[in-house]
Design a protein around this nucleic acid. Structure first.
Lengths: 159, 159
DNA sequence: TATTGTTATACTCTATAACTATA
DNA sequence: TATAGTTATAGAGTATAACAATA
């Protein structure tokens, strides 16, 4: 009879989700100081220096194209990016980073790196690279692809 | 000018969140075979063998008490648990695990451990314990507590 | 016919507030 | 007054469908 759940195996799911969640709150708080969300930072840094359309950026950032619309809206409202017509496809919009956006993206990247470096710094120096390497190995292999949930198909009313 | 985001520091947040998400989908799929969600499994295993109230279980599982209501509803509907009046506090309900619930909880725990063992097995044997230990160290230390977001206070209409 | 980006909206999840019964 | 549990619902986040413009 199990009294307390005897764990011979650590609760990896709980640990990973908790660690990821806390780190995201740290990142969100740190980036908020320069007017960015983690998502805006991710889109901005990937739009910097290259002409990319919304869909291309959405794929890079693992965002739905409709979520990308609101993210680009926020970047435009903040003055960090502008939608420009593509020279080759009149359907597509190039996300052009403004000067203020470029500064924010680079400062944002320094903030992101700092938060991650501080997290790793909590480990003994000899543990840091092995930990990060193991995590990368898992994400590239066993934990690369989510298991598909039973698809939730939704009805839509005609208007 | 940053062309591609040059990472001298790995994107720990992205890696941790991705790994946690994928592992949770694996867990959800595996537990679904015996009619459990990860949350139901967590509550059930902690209700097993001890008389605990909903609020006590909510604290253990990091759930809001209103979320616990729906979780216990699901457990009752599945025939895995029952609400029993507390002998000492007539406001409180003890979550009593049924025989079917006890079997499901124990089988569920085997499933959870198996999924986690398989994930760890993707690493070289010499890396497994160091990886898990580092993750536990982070979660107990630098990544223990979420940074508070700006509180979202919501109005509520009088009815 | 297929694709880009947009809008509208439906669904899920979670958390707040109010409430009842009891302490 | 405070707490256990319930209900109702607000709000955030996200994903689907439909659509206009263009390919």
């Amino acid at each position: 009879m199990a009294e307390t759940p005897l764990r011979t195996v650590p609760d990896l799911t709980g640990l990973l989700k908790h660690a990821g969640h806390v780190l995201e709150t740290q990142l969100t708080a740190a980036l908020a100081e320069i007017g960015l969300t983690p998502r805006m930072q991710c889109v901005l840094i990937n739009a910097l220096g290259q002409e990319r359309t919304q869909i291309q950026l959405a794929e890079i950032a693992y965002l739905d194209k409709t979520t990308m619309v609101t993210t680009v809206d926020a970047l435009e409202e903040a003055g960090f990016a502008e939608r420009k017509p593509s020279a080759t496809d009149r359907r597509a919009r190039i996300i052009a980073v403004t000067e203020a956006g470029a500064e924010a993206a680079e400062e944002g990247q320094r903030i992101v790196d700092k938060v991650h470096a501080e997290a790793l710094a909590a480990l003994a120096a000899s543990q840091r690279a092995p930990f990060a390497d193991s995590l990368i190995e898992l994400v590239n292999g066993q934990l690369a692809t989510p298991v598909e949930a039973q698809p939730v198909r939704r009805a839509r009313q005609r208007t």
